[in-house]
């Protein structure tokens, strides 16, 4: 397979990052591949992009398979496009059944967007990685953000922990539900309810839509508020509004778009955006440091063949794990800090 970084496309010797900033689609696609395939090489490019990020409104869209997420995303993307925003979409499928291989079909619902130069869509599979997928998604968002996308949708199938991790990187999380699909509140994992900023009850023309709304209100403790959306806007505290949509016809997606925009405004006005982003950067920094540190540490000792020796010593009770750890760490500890 050809090398992914440092290649010259079309005779250009400009870095991928620079080309991403100029809005080069090919380079944007390439850089996301690099993030997926060779995260360390991608870091070189991502360094140059950080200063240009932070402008996009990142909207996570999640829910069980078959609730119409892709159609919803398609409708929402068109609404933002109409208002002049550039749009990025990352469709993540964390549930690929076979290791490595995946069938990614979310784009089918977004065919009209494919040739819109203001829209960039990327499908991502799980590739057997768990934690890594969330970070790859986050870095892909970073690329699209730097490329000037004003709103970026991160669409993920399912309601498990890995999906929660993925959408947590979003500013606004939309949880989609459909009446009569076994999506009763009991079956929805509590985690997904907690992360929701906006609910979309899709296929709301189905008979039991109202029941689902009421169940949801009860679960959220907002029952009695006829218009949860209004209360969400009047108080300082954000109460997730429940919007009813029919994505196939577009009905209700205007209100959904407004709810998402309201939440963005709420985040900015209340200062919560900065709080969230601060927490997110901190978490990211922590995980990057941990990764790098861990990697350096193990490489160092594995190269020296020392690692297995220490394990052997532990087994023969020649050393205890605590002393061993201290000894292994000592070459890395600066004498001044380490004391």
């Amino acid at each position: 397979m050809e090398p992914l970084s440092g290649i010259k496309i079309g005779g250009s010797s400009v870095s991928l990052a620079e080309r991403v900033l100029r809005g080069d689609v090919r380079a944007t696609g390439r850089l996301i591949s690099l993030i997926e395939n060779a995260p360390e090489e991608a870091e070189q490019e991502l360094r140059a992009l950080h200063a240009y990020t932070g402008n996009a409104h990142v909207v996570g869209i999640t829910g069980s398979p078959g609730i119409g997420k892709s159609t919803l995303t398609d409708r929402l993307a068109k609404r933002w496009r109409k208002e002049g925003f550039q749009v990025g979409i990352i469709a993540v499928d964390p549930n690929s059944p076979f290791s490595g291989g995946a069938l990614l079909g979310d784009r089918v619902r977004m065919q009209d967007l494919a040739t819109d130069p203001g829209v960039f869509i990327r499908s991502m599979g799980a590739r057997g990685r768990l934690g890594g997928l969330a970070r790859a998604t986050h870095n892909a968002v970073r690329v699209l953000d730097a490329a000037g996308k004003g709103v970026i949708f991160v669409e993920t199938v399912g309601v498990g922990q890995s999906e929660v991790d993925i959408v947590r990187t979003a500013d606004t999380v939309v949880v989609g539900l459909v009446p009569g699909m076994g999506d009763d509140i009991q079956t929805i994992k509590a985690g997904i309810l907690e992360i929701a900023d906006v609910f979309a009850i899709n296929k709301a023309d189905r008979p039991d839509a109202n029941r689902l709304v009421i169940e949801l209100q009860m679960a959220l403790g907002t029952s009695g508020n006829a218009d949860t959306g209004a209360s969400a806007r009047t108080e300082g505290r954000w109460i997730p509004p429940i919007e009813q949509t029919i994505a196939s016809t577009g009905e209700g997606t205007g209100a959904l778009r407004k709810a998402i925009a309201d939440h963005w405004e709420h985040l900015q006005r209340s200062g919560e955006l900065e709080t969230r982003r601060r927490a997110r950067y901190e978490a990211e920094l922590q995980s990057v440091v941990e990764d790098h540190w861990r990697k350096r540490f193990f490489e160092y000792w594995q190269q020296r063949g020392h690692w297995e020796q220490v394990v052997e010593q532990l087994l023969r009770k020649e050393i205890d794990p605590f002393t061993a750890a201290q000894q292994l760490l000592s070459p890395f500890l600066d004498s001044e800090i380490g004391g």
């Binding site: 159609t71 069938l103 079909g105 089918v108 619902r109 196939s248 016809t249």
Partner: peptide, 10 residues
């Protein structure tokens, strides 16, 4: 009437 948007099922 609008147009039909196909879904892909695997």
């Amino acid at each position: 009437f609008g147009t039909h948007q196909a879904s892909v099922v695997f």
